[in-house]
């Protein structure tokens, strides 16, 4: 589904991603862990198509097409989804209107009619129930005045509505208390099928107790320095990232 080869990316001439390689197949859950500043969000942003980041080398193929050639909106319509670490507040645009617009833009892309108002309402109410979000949220301005946890749940709500092929969850656990974490993880697990894939970016192992990864990768200093199964996450939890840093330093 996703094939990243030797990806280099920089921002303002500062090289942040220094040769990332990653293969994600349908049905898989990958976790990307790593210390702060290692480039996890940068990788997510490059996949979503943020202009600030310049890809200097390498390629990304998403379902057979060159992802890097696509506009951000086309990536989304083709099934790429990024749950932002820091969702943007957009005053004056209601959640309901926003998600409906996004869904219809996708449908238009595939030559489909706009979703019927009743169908839309039914679906969003269902997903809100799944994520235990108060229906009152529908009329509220996007992310405006939301708590950290509310913003993250709202991201997962959008994911549930848009039904992406590949979801990248960037620190969706930060700002969530344990109950909210369980709800969000449960939501993500319910959306999981054998056809879609998930990349979970996280700093801590805790979320991975609930969203169990098939693979765990450690991103450090712009490179994936170690990959393994879920036991790697436990190891990181126990021993921290210092040994990774030391290992990485030793191989230079």
């Amino acid at each position: 589904m996703l094939s990243i080869k030797n990806l280099h990316a920089s921002v303002e001439d500062l090289c942040i991603l220094k040769g990332i390689n990653l293969e994600v197949k349908p049905g898989e859950i990958h976790a990307i862990m790593g210390p702060n500043g290692s480039g996890k969000s940068t990788l997510a942003s490059v996949l979503a198509g943020k202009e600030d980041y310049e890809v200097t080398e390498g390629e990304v193929v998403f379902n057979g097409v060159d992802l890097l050639e696509m506009e951000p909106e086309d990536r989304a319509r083709e099934g790429m989804f990024l749950a932002f670490q820091y969702p943007v507040e957009i005053p004056g645009v209601s959640i309901s209107n926003f998600i409906k617009t996004a869904m219809n833009e996708k449908r238009k892309h595939f030559g489909q009619e706009d979703i019927k108002a009743v169908d839309y309402l039914k679906k969003i109410k269902e997903k809100m129930a799944l994520l235990e979000i108060n229906p009152k949220f529908l009329g509220r301005s996007l992310n405006q005045g939301f708590s950290g946890g509310e913003k993250k749940r709202n991201e997962v709500l959008q994911m549930a509505m848009l039904e992406p092929k590949l979801s990248v969850l960037d620190e969706t656990d930060s700002g969530l208390d344990i109950d909210a974490l369980k709800i969000v993880a449960n939501g993500v697990n319910k959306l999981k099928t054998s056809d879609n894939a998930t990349i979970v970016i996280t700093h801590y192992q805790r979320l991975l107790d609930y969203i169990v990864p098939d693979f765990v990768h450690v991103l450090y200093n712009g490179q994936i320095v170690k990959s393994g199964d879920k036991t790697l996450a436990h190891e990181l939890e126990k021993n921290g990232y210092d040994w990774i840093k030391e290992e990485a330093a030793a191989t230079v």
Binding site: I90, V93, E105
Partner: peptide, 28 residues
């Protein structure tokens, strides 16, 4: 707001539609 624009694009909303939505909401 460029960040808001990107956020909307990242949900599949075309840049032009997103721009209009943002301006409309500004006037709302």
């Amino acid at each position: 707001n460029e960040d808001a624009l990107f956020y909307m694009q990242a949900r599949g909303i075309g840049k032009d539609v997103a721009r209009k939505l943002l301006l409309k909401s500004f006037a709302a």
